[in-house]
């Protein structure tokens, strides 16, 4: 991959999401302890760490997907543009429209490609006419680098696409609600290397409009696509900083062990 990306500067210093002292419990299990993270706007932030370290849990806190798990309890403060997303006045539905999510396994709905992408705009009422919707669908498919492959078969089922295409369809679906932040939970773990490269390229392009948070267990991937990296271990945020700094000059011995392949 192009190593140039590592050299790219972080373009903005505005905090999009600020997390302070976040604790997550699954029943009696204390899954996440005292996590403080600031996620910058127009930046790709990678969460890395061995499996079970809490990185996916934390990601799911950011758009309150943990609400759907009955036993999960979240404490601490997470703000989006300065507004506490766990405030009683916040509707998770509205929140999730602003913070979209792409999952580990491509999960296109059993609908046509068009309907998959149109799903978000339809439920949120983002378009008024069919023509407008068509435009949004096309734009999102283009942004997800899928348009040329599917433009002739928009009405065929999304489940008929290949794995990489399915995941790009899911990304198109996520950006169709015009989110401000895009969360990606190991988006390439179910894909082959070629599809992975396509998706990674896409992530880099998305950075110009969204703040992207990506969970990955591939350090190479984190190094390739992200500007900032957070390392989680056993429910703790061990180290957070510029990706280059984390990989070349880790401060914490645990980070170093992980990066050099001794744990994980």
């Amino acid at each position: 991959m192009k190593d140039l990306r590592l050299e790219r500067d972080v373009q903005t210093e505005t905090n999009k999401i600020e997390a302070r002292k976040v604790q997550v419990y699954y029943g009696t299990n204390h899954a996440l302890k005292d996590v403080d993270v600031d996620i910058l706007d127009k930046t790709v932030t990678a969460f890395i760490g061995p499996s079970g370290c809490g990185k996916s849990t934390f990601l799911r806190c950011l758009n309150r997907m943990n609400d759907t798990v009955a036993s999960a309890k979240v404490q601490g403060a997470i703000t989006l543009d300065g507004e506490d997303i766990y405030d009683a006045r916040v509707d998770p539905v509205q929140l999730r429209a602003k913070i979209g999510m792409v999952f580990q396994k491509p999960n296109p709905f059993p609908k046509s490609i068009y309907d998959n992408v149109a799903y978000g705009p339809k439920i949120h009422g983002l378009t008024r006419t069919k023509a407008e919707l068509d435009e949004v669908v096309e734009a999102c498919l283009r942004k997800a680098a899928l348009w040329n492959e599917v433009k002739d078969r928009l009405q065929s089922p999304g489940t008929g696409l290949s794995g990489g295409q399915q995941q790009r369809l899911c990304i198109a679906r996520a950006i169709a609600t015009s989110p401000e932040v895009l969360l990606m939970d190991e988006p390439c773990s179910a894909l082959d290397p070629i599809a992975t490269a396509q998706v990674e390229e896409l992530i880099d392009e998305l950075r110009s409009q969204f703040s992207v948070v990506i969970v990955t267990h591939s350090m190479q991937q984190a190094a390739r696509v992200s500007q900032r990296t957070a390392f989680f271990h056993l429910g703790n945020l061990v180290e957070y900083g510029e990706t280059g700094a984390i990989f070349t000059n880790p401060k914490d011995p645990r980070t170093e062990s992980y990066i050099t392949g001794r744990i994980g």
């Binding site: 706007d41 509707d91 509205q94």
Partner: peptide, 15 residues
């Protein structure tokens, strides 16, 4: 100047 464009409406005020 991203802030004003992004803050179409507050999370606290359901539409």
């Amino acid at each position: 100047t991203p802030e004003p464009a992004r803050l179409r409406h507050s999370l606290f005020a359901p539409d």
